[in-house]
Structure formats: C-alpha cells, structure tokens
C-alpha cells in the first residue's frame, strides 16, 4: 500500500503543476491539445524516472560542490536520448513539441527531484518518486490540454465533439494562462473541500 501512497502523492498532494507550480513553460507551451499535453508529460516522466534512478546510484560518489553541474549533465544526457528515440519512432509528436523536448533539461521539476529526493534516497524509492511525480505532471498537462482543446477547437483527442470553431483564444497563448489560472482555482476549491 505504501507503494500506491508514494505514487498518489505526486498526483494530488505534491502535484508539480497545481501545488508546487513548477515546470510552467512546457505546461503552458505544449498543451494546445490533450494529446500533445499527454505526450509532453510522458516524455518528462521518462526523463525524470531515468535521471532519478541514475542520480540515486551515483550521488554518493559526487563531491558536494559539483553536485548541480553533474546532475545537469546526467539529465541532459537522458533528455537527448529521449529526443532521439522520439525523432525515430514518434516523428509527428516530436515536431509538434519541438523546442520543449530539449528544454526538459531546465525543467525545475527534474532538477528539483534530483536534488530533493533522488540524492538522498535509494534506487527503488527514487524510481517510484519519479513515476509518481511524472504521472502527476502528465495528468495535469492532459487535463489542461483537454480543457484548451475542448474550448478552443471543440474537440477532444482530435475527435470533433462540438460544432463550429470554438473559442480560438484558448488555443492561443493568452488562453493557456487563463485556462491554467482557472483550473488552479478549481483545484484549490476541491482540495479545500476534501482535506
């Protein structure tokens, strides 16, 4: 049960988007549709899990002062690996997400978990932490993408549900900020009711 608890912590209690407010750039930049949001979330989750595992393995050997640069290099290596794999096997998604794939390197969530969790915990715990936080991030991005796609173009996962053009502004940049703002309000409201 402990395992489940660890996973669910990333989705609700320590949700990276709605509670910790980290990784805003990809959150806003890639969620023009539910599918894009989900793709970005999963790519981040893979990097987060792999880098958590690697860092928990080597952190004992790294001198304190070069800790951060070492972590950044490790993370950058995994990001590039993910980049190549996506280019080869999911070229469509890769070209939509574009610049935001290499920018996973500077996503505060990844470095944050490396520093705050993986460097102090065992391999298995770090892996679970990576998956949990990654799932939380994926869930928030998918929800935001879902809302923006539904309001902006009247479809969900590319399937047209509502007639007409929708409120275009939600697909454009301002809609990203506004939709995320209102989703956060909703999240806060629900959380204050439950807890």
């Amino acid at each position: 049960m402990n395992f489940l608890k660890d996973i669910s912590k990333g989705i609700i209690k320590e949700n990276p988007t709605f509670v910790l407010i980290l990784g805003m750039c990809p959150t806003l930049g890639t969620t023009t549709s539910a599918l894009n949001g989900m793709g970005m979330g999963l790519a981040t989750m893979v990097v987060l899990t792999l880098s958590n595992i690697a860092i928990s393995l080597v952190s004992g050997q790294i001198p304190g002062k070069v800790r951060i640069p070492s972590y950044i290099v490790i993370i950058a290596a995994f990001v590039t690996v993910v980049q190549f794999v996506m280019q080869a096997y999911a070229p469509g998604l890769y070209s939509t997400l574009g610049l935001f794939i290499p920018l996973i390197v500077v996503n505060c969530i990844v470095l944050g978990r490396a520093e705050a969790f993986a460097s102090k915990n065992g391999v298995l715990d770090s892996a679970i932490d990576g998956i949990g936080i990654g799932l939380g991030f994926t869930a928030s991005l998918t929800v935001l993408g879902f809302v923006r796609e539904l309001l902006g173009s009247g479809s969900v996962f590319g399937i047209k549900l509502l007639e007409g053009d929708g409120m275009l502004v939600f697909v454009l940049a301002p809609g990203a900020f506004i939709a995320l703002g209102y989703l956060m309000v909703l999240f806060n409201k629900l959380k204050s009711r439950i807890l």
Partner: peptide, 21 residues
C-alpha cells in the same frame, strides 16, 4: 481566497498576453 497567489497571477498574465496579441 481560492484565487490568491498563482491563479490570479496567471489570469493577469493571460490578459497581458491578450494585450500583446
């Protein structure tokens, strides 16, 4: 209360982005 902090900041940023459009 539920708008305090990040939510209202994001919505403000959205309106600013609208202006920049």
């Amino acid at each position: 209360k539920v708008f305090k902090g990040a939510p209202i900041a994001l919505i403000t940023a959205g309106i600013l982005a609208l202006a920049f459009m």
